[in-house]
Amino acid sequence: MLLQQLLNGVVVGGVYALFAVGFNLVFGVQRLLNLAHGAVFMTGAFVAYYTVRAGGPLILGFVAAAVASGVLAMIIEVVCFRRLRKSGDAEFGAIISSMGAGMVIMTFWQWVSQTQVLRFPFDTVPVVIYRFWGLRVSLLQLMMAAAAIAIVLVMAWFIYRTAFGRQVRAVTDSERASMLVGINPNRIYNLTYFISGALAGAAGVLVGLAFNNINFTMGEPYLMFGFAIIILGGLGSIPGALMASLIFGMVQTLSIAYLPSGLTTAFIFSAMFLILLVRPNGLMGREEAGSLRGRR
């Protein structure tokens, strides 16, 4: 039973990771919180739903969702952040402007869906249950875990092993120095926002499938979890976000299994406070003074 819950926790954590890694990637590069990230996530679910409803295969829905969400995130960066970053007070302004963008997107999908809860057609993912070592794993769970692991591995390879990823990390360290070596930071911002949005969109499809519930408010709780995960993992740290996501997934499934169900959310956030007591900068966080040194 415990092993089963841990397995479920890893699957849930993997989906959180897709959401939070992109959220934290953008935060790391620009030091701005994109409060429309939940709306981008939801957009992924809607795009996949309408693709499948139009007769497209699920895989096409996935790709369409990732691309649409990625492009949406790029647009949000240009519209909400690019001009603001030239002002001295971008951090606060960005919170309000991205919150506004989130509302625009939510209202759009509310209008499109006519405030209905949408469900993928039955058998979009065939209900198949595998049993081994006394554990039960559904095909959908396997898909979720595989997608999460694959996407996170590709991301890690991209950020730490490619020339382009090196440029992303250079801009994260110092925008000014990166311009002096010939990097166009705007190109890097476009790219990181696209990746961030595409990951969120993929997470949205998986969550829409797992709960078979797509509606215009589905991004909100994930935005809250996203905050908690980047604080717990360490601001701007990708490995930290990954670790924190898995911890959150496990704490959530374990508390659902063993504790009164109404307390789940309270329990997750209490776990966050407990860990922060011991590690105030988060699991993989650097000292803030250190990470800001050399910027601008």
Binding site: A163, Q167, R169, T172, S174, R176, A177, L180, V181, G294
Partner: peptide
């Protein structure tokens, strides 16, 4: 100086 502090020496040079 403004080197990239979180990147290795070699990565800094490659970025050049």
């Amino acid at each position: 100086r403004q080197v990239f502090p979180q990147l290795t020496v070699t990565e800094n040079l490659q970025l050049g």
